[in-house]
């Protein structure tokens, strides 16, 4: 279990993950939107990128969220869910 947590943490803070997520945020988040995650309210795209670059707790949350989505996309989970709601 400890090994699983450590390897998840390594993925979240890896430079590749950071670069990927920063590129996604840069491309996908317009300047007029603000993201609230839990107690962190109203992050602009620039603030999101800063957190990811720093690799702090919020940065890791953002990365985790992106990776979860990508994983769900790649396994078809999202497509199946969206079809079920039609």
């Amino acid at each position: 279990m400890k090994n699983k947590i450590n390897s998840e943490r390594e993925i979240e803070t890896s430079e590749e993950a950071k670069k990927l997520v920063i590129a996604r945020i840069d491309a996908q988040v317009p300047s007029n939107l603000r993201l609230s995650i839990g107690s962190f309210g109203g992050m602009s795209k620039e603030e999101m990128i800063e957190h990811v670059e720093k690799g702090d707790e919020m940065g890791r949350q953002i990365i985790k969220s992106h990776l979860r989505f990508l994983h769900a996309q790649s396994t078809g989970k999202i497509t199946r869910a969206l079809i079920s709601a039609e």
Binding site: L35, G38, S39
Partner: peptide, 11 residues
């Protein structure tokens, strides 16, 4: 079980 997320438009 995960932090609730939402986007808001500053407009």
């Amino acid at each position: 079980e995960l932090p609730f997320q939402f986007y808001a438009d500053i407009t």
